[in-house]
Design a protein around this nucleic acid. Sequence first.
DNA 1: GAGTCGCC
DNA 2: TTAG
Length: 233
Amino acid sequence: MSHLNDPQQHSLVSGKPLPAGFRHLPGRLDATAQEGLLAEVLASVGAAGWFQPTMPRSGRPLSVRMCNLGSLGWVSDKEGYRYQPHHPDTGCPWPPLPASLLELWQAVAGYPHPPEACLVNLYRTGARMGLHQDRDEADLSAPVVSVSLGDDALFRIGGTNRRDPGRTIVLRSGDVVVLGGASRLCFHGIDRILPGTSALVPGGGRINLTLRRVSVPPAASPFSPQPGTRPGG
DNA sequence: GAGTCGCC
DNA sequence: TTAG
């Protein structure tokens, strides 16, 4: 039942609320939208190629494979975490961010500038993502918007301190989640992929899309009005 | 198995 | 400042 994942509803039942600013949208993308979005993303990623991120310092590979769409992409290697405009293996610019994702951002982010990065994470069965914060973006006032495609995932979200207690939520194909406001810097991760719970992703598993604004937008100018603003307003 | 902790 |  979808209401079980609703922050207000659940806090009333368990007394263990989700962080303020965290939204698990009640309506998920329908099957047609999921298929169309995945086809677009896989076409772009197919041309660019997946890369295998590794841990800073140790060089140990993460269990997920990654690609990015947009003007900037998140990468991790022995040198550390960063955003960069090109694919780490080929040096090519990331493929463009699909219009459908720009529209989704505009509809749910509540932020007046477009996203610059869409991190595409591929979780095959057994892949996980340890508890972490998204804090490599210069503009932390913008939310992170996540779209789940494929197999169900157990998503854990805690507080802004690593040892804060957390909650586990099932993310299903088509689910949209927004980490904004006070939840923007909450620790979160993927504990487990539930194999065989969706047939959407070829070869099985889950693909997660995270839309992010990376850089602080340029200051508003009367000669170059920003989207969502109005002169004299 | 879920959750927490400590450490390389 | 470990997304291990």
